[in-house]
């Protein structure tokens, strides 16, 4: 039992970074803009947050700096795909390259710094005593984790129950109709891409300042940005499903580490304990599972005839007759 509590407890913490990135990408995609640059924005956020926290001694200032950095980088993508109407796939990939390169240059020598403050962690009294769930969700968690809990219902409410959320869905599904109602499609798309960048920057900052403190060059994010994009598809653009996916993936991360430390699993001798070399298969697991999750998501999309916002990836040109 303790084994699983440890796995899920760490999973909720790991998953928080994934949650932020996934929610940000979800908003941008709901507005019709695919941003494949999540990994790059996370890395920029991570390096900016870490170095700012080091320079100022305040993790919160670092986190905000990371969010701004992620947001600024995303504006580049917004300009290129919304104003210049370039291909969103290519621009997003470029953003990843740029983010990785820039963060490596900015993070030169940052790996060896010591004494960078981290985001404080605390427990919630009473709630932490609930058996099983208490230790997983409320025991000695970073403030960001609790922020994540609040974000999930807030996102759901915003998207499905507010006027702004209705407009958001409209500009992703049928921008021409939204435009005819006086919603400024261009401005809102800029806004949501920017929010997506801020959230990716937050995710990066959460990693370097809270989850796994430190700067490990481009391995800091270890592909979380890409997993976030896959989770959005798996979640069918729904924030609650996205959150569940994020926490499960976070748990998987920890599971692959912890399972190597026990000699008996489910009553049989644990091969991962006795043969260290099999660890590489465990490390493949999150990536393999991402593919599987994507297959499930895509099949569901075909079956239910729903899925991606209809205008996802298509530049909007006012007054031009297109597909939409």
């Amino acid at each position: 039992m303790n084994f699983w509590i440890n796995v899920f407890s760490a999973g909720v913490s790991n998953g928080t970074a994934l949650l932020f990135a996934t929610m940000g990408e979800l908003l941008a995609e709901r507005a019709g803009v695919l941003n494949l640059g999540v990994e790059g924005m996370m890395l920029i956020g991570a390096v900016t947050a870490y170095s700012t926290a080091y320079a100022t001694g305040d993790p919160w200032i670092g986190l905000i700096a990371g969010m701004i950095a992620g947001g600024l980088l995303s504006l580049l993508h917004a300009f290129v795909v919304i104003t210049l109407r370039a291909d969103q796939v290519v621009s997003g990939l470029s953003l990843t390259f740029l983010g990785i390169g820039l963060s490596l240059v900015l993070g030169e020598g940052l790996a060896s710094v010591k004494g960078v403050p981290t985001i404080p962690a605390f427990s919630i009294p009473l709630l932490e005593q609930i058996p099983f769930f208490g230790p997983i969700f409320f025991d000695n968690k970073s403030a960001l984790v609790y922020f994540g809990y609040l974000l999930i219902p807030a996102m759901w409410f915003y998207i499905y129950r507010t006027r702004a959320g209705l407009h958001l869905r409209a500009i992703g599904e049928y921008p021409a109709a939204a435009d005819s109602l006086g919603i400024d499609v261009y401005a809102w798309r800029y806004f949501y891409v920017f929010v997506g960048g801020i959230m990716a920057g937050l995710a990066g900052g959460a990693i370097t300042l809270s989850i796994t403190p430190g700067w490990f060059s481009e391995f800091t994010t270890s592909g979380f940005g890409w997993i976030a994009i896959a989770l959005v598809i798996f979640a069918q653009w729904d924030p609650v499903r996205a959150a569940i996916g994020a926490y499960l993936f976070g748990s998987l991360r920890r599971f692959t580490l912890d399972v190597q430390g026990v000699n008996v699993v489910l009553g049989i001798a644990n091969p991962f304990f006795y043969d260290r070399n099999l660890q590489f298969f465990l490390e493949m697991l999150p990536y393999a599972l991402t593919v599987i999750v994507l297959i499930i998501g895509s099949r569901a999309a075909i079956r239910k005839r729903l899925g991606a916002p209809a205008a996802l990836g298509i530049p909007y040109v006012r007054g031009e007759r297109g597909l939409l």
């Binding site: 621009s91 953003l95 990785i100 490596l104 240059v105 030169e108």
Partner: peptide
């Protein structure tokens, strides 16, 4: 040369100037 990420950075910037020039 230092910094070591320079080649990656140049590649990223190059991709962006390229797709922007496409317009």
């Amino acid at each position: 040369i230092q910094p070591s990420g320079l080649a990656r950075l140049l590649q990223g910037i190059l991709l962006f100037t390229l797709i922007s020039s496409e317009v």
